[in-house]
């Protein structure tokens, strides 16, 4: 055989080996699972599309993010029981603490691994009332008046409901100055609650679809969504004088990403939440962004917001005192019946 031919054949072989070894890297397909809480469905639908586009442009890989939604506590339980979430985006830090503590899925210091306490967006608790505000609800004091039916979910199962409860407690504490008065205020509030749904979305459906109640205590984003989905002619949002800064955190689930070898893309997914694009999407869906939004700034009225750390000493403490079995919520709810 002539040497030129042999060289050509060798080149061809070398080239095809190179091609086969490169091609998987060229067209990698990655799947991520984001286990989230109830009201974020619309946000992550949008965000996942944007991230897929960004990731493809950056690396050439196709990434599909799958979603699971439910009450925050219930979702955390599923991840502990083996639902293979690459990332969790839940309603409150305590639910992710439980994953670190009970199943060692991620380190205990997870919350310090991302900026802003691992919360790329925040929200707060506002009131949704029926059009024209027939019961004249302006602030927390009006919510506890006799004859006002209040819709809020069960704090035992719903993250949003715990924020609702703490917001009411914070208001009373600031106003009357002591714990006993705050407790009295919150127990009067729960006397006005005809139905405790298990999740935030269930409570919203009860209020807007089934027409039960005079005021819904809701996530700000959930209230705006209800307003947009079901008609501005039927409801209006009332912002109380004081509310709580709700910080729904996000985290990488180390044990899962190491097993599925998805750490890099999962980390990029969470980082993208903090990027200007991610922040803009959050603002679009009525979550308060960490970066001031140009386009949507006017949506978010200034409210006097207190944090869980300054008033309740953090989630672990608040959970134990108020929501664990036999805690203050159990005591006042038993009294309210």
């Amino acid at each position: 055989m002539n040497p030129l031919k042999i060289r050509n054949i060798l080149l061809l072989i070398g080239f095809s080996i190179a091609l086969t070894s490169i091609s998987p890297a060229l067209a990698a397909e990655v799947k991520l699972l984001n286990v989230s809480y109830d009201p974020t469905r619309e946000l992550y639908q949008d965000f996942n599309t944007a991230f897929a586009k960004y990731w493809q442009a950056k690396t050439g890989d196709t990434v599909t993010v799958q979603q699971s939604h439910g009450g925050s506590g219930k979702q955390a339980r599923s991840v502990i029981d083996g639902l293979e979430a690459d990332v969790v985006t839940l309603a409150l830090a305590y639910d992710i603490d439980a994953m670190a503590e009970k199943a060692k899925l991620l380190p205990a210091n997870w919350q310090s691994r991302l900026p802003n306490n691992s919360t790329p967006y925040t929200s707060t608790i506002v009131f949704l009332v029926r059009k024209g505000n027939p019961k004249g609800i302006k602030d927390w004091e009006d919510v506890v008046k006799p004859g006002v039916a209040v819709i809020t979910p069960n704090p035992k199962t719903s993250g949003g409901a715990r924020w609702n409860y703490l917001a009411a407690w914070a208001f009373a504490l600031k106003k009357y100055g002591n714990e006993a008065k705050a407790r009295e205020f919150v127990s009067t509030l729960y006397k006005n609650v005809p139905i405790l749904d298990s999740g935030a979305r269930g409570a919203t459906i009860t209020f807007v679809q089934r027409g039960i109640g005079d005021v819904l205590l809701a996530w700000e984003n959930e209230a705006f969504l209800a307003l947009n989905e079901l008609g501005k002619d039927k409801f209006e949002i009332v912002t109380p004088s004081l509310s709580i800064l709700a910080e729904p955190p996000v985290a990488l689930v180390d044990k899962v990403v190491d097993k599925k070898k998805t750490r890099v893309v999962a980390q990029a997914y969470l980082d993208y939440l903090y990027s200007p694009e991610g922040q803009e999407i959050a603002a679009k869906h009525y979550y308060r962004p960490r970066l001031a939004s140009q386009k949507y700034a006017s949506r978010f009225p200034k409210i006097n917001l207190v944090t869980i750390n300054e008033l309740f000493g953090g989630w672990a403490k608040a959970q134990k005192a108020h929501f664990d079995d036999g805690g203050i919520f159990d005591q006042i709810y038993a009294g309210a019946r």
Binding site: D81, G82, L83
Partner: peptide, 18 residues
């Protein structure tokens, strides 16, 4: 994952629940 057969299934990379 926290169940009776959970650790064995995880070790063999078998996903049953969820």
């Amino acid at each position: 994952a926290q169940g009776l057969l959970g650790p064995w299934l995880a070790a063999h990379d078998i996903q049953v629940i969820f």
